[in-house]
Design a protein around this nucleic acid. Structure first.
Lengths: 131, 131
DNA sequence: TCTTGACATGGAGTCCACTCCAGGTGATAC
DNA sequence: GTATCACCTGGAGTGGACTCCATGTCAAGA
């Protein structure tokens, strides 16, 4: 697949795809004889993996570390597993934070649903619903 | 409360607190006669609100818009409610994305738990567990 | 009175994750 | 053969969200 096709398929700009490869977020993509990228199945799986990690909020540094470990072969299986476990902890913590935010947001919206509510936070001291 | 106390209480640096106020993420904080900030209950509630919105991934622009609407008074109740509803949608979408990522992460970790697994993605074509 | 320390301000600098651009190459269409 | 087009590269630029810094003020303690 060309970079344009991959870009459409995963909704990631060609510039970003090249950037990811340059900084090691993707292992080198195969090229045709004129040096043009020709993404294969493995490349696509890495792209999906990176999209997934990005959506999970994993920093670029941790993502490239994972790729680097992978490319060093089986000796790094343990380290890769550790990295994923650590990122899972971080992800779950972020999700818990977001859930708390969502709960608060829902409370606040509920206040706006009541007519005449002063809808918090109060301008200064006292007035407005307790939070 | 002084900026240092608030900083400790909410784990937000004094620089960030001043920055938030400067760009309108917090309504002006009361000052003592020498111009030093003296955070009151309302200021603290705004800080909590901003921490909450930040944890929810709300951009600074949307947060300052909310504050600006609030400061314009009751005429903007509807607009504020709309803004919160919109941000709730975005938040729920992000959480759904993260849940998908978590599911995938768990699958991947499961592969690492099995001894001798080739642990994806494959280096090139074929080998390695299907995803 | 002098020093210290917490605070103030405006503005510059940093970091992350892209995003854009100038200049160049190779394959295809006319 | 030349125009067009998609692609290439290295490097500069951008936007968001801080973070740091030089310089200055004020109140309190030695």
């Amino acid at each position: 697949m060309t970079i344009a096709e991959v870009s459409r398929k995963y909704d990631i700009s060609p510039d970003t795809l090249r950037y990811y490869e340059k900084i090691g977020l993707l292992p080198p993509v195969p090229r045709n004889k004129s040096g043009v990228r020709d993404y294969d199945a493995a490349s696509c799986q890495w792209i999906e993996m990176m999209k997934c990690m990005r959506a999970a909020g994993v920093q670029i540094e941790a993502r490239s570390e994972y790729v680097a470990l992978y490319r060093q072969g089986d000796a790094t299986l343990g380290a890769r597993r550790e990295l994923l476990l650590e990122q899972r902890e971080l992800l779950m913590a972020r999700m818990a934070d977001m859930q708390r935010s969502l709960d608060r947001l829902n409370e606040k919206i509920a206040l706006y649903e009541r007519p005449n509510s002063a809808a918090c936070p109060p301008e200064r001291e006292g007035a407005g619903p307790a939070e």
